[in-house]
Design a binder for these strands. Structure first.
Lengths: 341, 341
DNA sequence: TGTCATTTTGGGAACGTTCCCTCTCGAATT
DNA sequence: AATTCGAGAGGGAACGTTCCCAAAATGACA
């Protein structure tokens, strides 16, 4: 059996050279070594089935060539596509990427932080549940954050311009003739400040000279369950057909759940009520009716995160980088057009 | 600045003990050490902000406490939920889990294999694209396979009893009055053997004394695109309304795509045609109409995989384990009931 | 107070690499 | 023919732990 025992020493012996020479051959740093030696070493490696122990190498070099992408929910295409894009880019540079799914659990996040701290990864791309920047910086590992909640902070960041994206959606509803727009989103970060979506909503109403109706502002979790909740609350509005004609949802998961729940209860989205989501996840085109939404450029975000991380690894002292991408309206069929009614 | 330099030595010095004692304290192996020493060491650790270098420890102990879960598509809820279940179980035992997404690419898979081989992980749970068992065993890392394609092979495996699950679906269609059942699935592994779903289909027809019509057997990719393809081919069957009344799809992604495409083309699933899927992914309940399908017990599969891996790590010599779970019919609204017509 | 068992401690080797430094040897230059 | 040079090779320290073993401290008991 070719069991674990083969180290650089055995190879050196078999090839008739020193372990230093073997090291030169296998670590492609290219210290000068003769053709003869290279051949002999490669031969011995083949023969013995030698496999480099990366742990030992990492101990010496402090490089692992592994990157951790830590996201809240791998099952959400929004996150998994960002991860995939980042992975593509990072693998081009010789890094391997693994994904950590926190499932929105603090405990899991902590666990991954612990992992990251112990010098197992050369870098970190993450969307943090807790957003404790101090903690992240304390890890001693180059890190790039995804999402703009922490835009003001002292760390590399890439995300979408959520406020602009929100206004894009609202503007579309407005142009379709809607004047009583409801909003449903989560209130991340407690009451300390309004969520960006909500802030954009307020600003938008003001710009258009529309009144703000607190009864049309829903705070729910951005999940399937949140969608059911939302519809229940929504339909409980007295006289809702008079009072509200459209609904902006904080993300597509929520919007899709709402669409399905509305339909189940006999209210037809795209006909009785307008719904717009945000993200443009793949399922957005599978609903009935298909969901009009604002696409976030997942590909770009992932790639950008990877690139920023790479340059940060190369130069830890380089100036902070923050990149925000615009959203893009994707028109489908979940919005009523009043003009054409 | 508390920069990297703090090792076990510094701690030892600060605590006035030897590095051996420090080691005893931090590696919770519990060699006997006095209360006084424990206190002194913990104090010093706190003071200096010492953080254990796991690489070094791993080098010595050959344990990394990391597990790689390698799956083909992290965006497919089927896989991500298995991963999550496995993660839950493994974390209970002190392991950390990272996910590798191969996206069905051989190159990525190879990359992860390389990673696994270099003793970075204590174990591996995977669904392999290539199913090269020799390769996997050659990694020298305990591994558990997911899926039953390789059931005959020399490696721990857990999966669903796909043939039984398929028959469950077919039986349901049969009971609903369907006598002309089409099947659409992928033909993994070339022509060497029929896919399990297809084999179950043939057996089922035989049992019921139904004729096999090659024109009702579709080979497509189990993806959204595959679904569009499928519907195109399906509707091209001359006189299809006479010739076929139901369609079994190899997985839910395919079935959902087919539902949407059928509806788009004016054929109403659950009314003009029966459709049954397989997996029961979350979106199966979001389609219009909601999809009747056979649920695969993702939770159980993930947990079982984790447990088998754990015991394999503990005892590399223990006998091979293979576990197959039954599927479960989930009735929704995508099947026509001929009796009640 | 001495003996013995038991707990606690420390020194050093080991894990498998990389890296620094020195040394050799043959070729090129003078 | 003597000197210089550079490519190639080897020896050993270092990375930061754990583990083995022997030594020292403690305490129980006679």
């Amino acid at each position: 059996m070719t069991k674990s025992k083969i180290s650089i020493h055995e190879v050196a012996e078999a090839a008739g050279v020193s372990k230093s020479t073997v090291s030169r051959v296998i670590s492609d740093k290219g210290g000068s070594v003769s053709r003869r030696s290279v051949l002999a070493v490669n031969n011995a490696i083949e023969q013995l089935g030698y496999k480099k122990n990366v742990m030992a190498a990492s101990l010496r070099t402090q490089k692992t060539y592994m990157i951790l992408v830590m996201i809240p929910d791998v099952a959400n295409p929004f996150w998994s596509e960002i991860a995939r894009a980042a992975q593509d880019r990072l693998e081009m540079e010789g890094y391997s990427v693994v994904i950590g799914s926190t499932d929105w659990h603090d405990a899991r996040e902590t666990r991954y932080f612990e992992l990251a701290r112990s010098s197992r990864f050369d870098g970190l791309i993450l969307n943090s549940v807790t957003d404790d920047i101090g903690l992240i910086k304390g890890l001693g590992v180059p890190a790039v954050l995804i999402g703009e909640r922490v835009a003001g902070q002292d760390i590399d960041t890439v995300g979408t311009d959520t406020m602009a994206a929100t206004k894009l959606a609202l503007q579309y509803l407005y142009e379709a003739g809607s004047r009583h727009i409801a909003i449903a989103t989560s209130d991340y970060g407690g009451e300390r400040y309004l969520s960006l979506r909500r802030r954009a909503y307020r600003e938008f109403l003001e710009t258009k000279g529309l009144a703000f109706d607190p009864g049309l502002s829903f705070s729910v979790r951005l999940s399937k369950e949140g969608g059911k909740d939302l519809v229940r609350q929504f339909l409980a509005i007295p006289d809702w057909r008079q009072r509200v004609d459209s609904l902006f949802c904080g993300n597509d998961i929520l919007a899709i759940a709402a669409i399905n729940e509305f339909r189940r209860l006999g209210v037809m989205p795209g006909k009785d009520i307008s719904i717009v989501g945000m993200d443009d996840i793949p399922d957005a085109s599978n609903t009935y009716p298909p969901l009009t939404t604002v696409r976030k450029p997942r590909q770009l975000i992932g790639t950008a995160a990877a690139e920023i991380l790479l340059s940060r690894i190369k130069d830890p002292e380089k100036p902070l980088e923050k990149r925000l991408f615009p959203g893009q309206l994707v028109v489908r069929e979940s919005v009523v057009h009043k003009g054409n009614k």
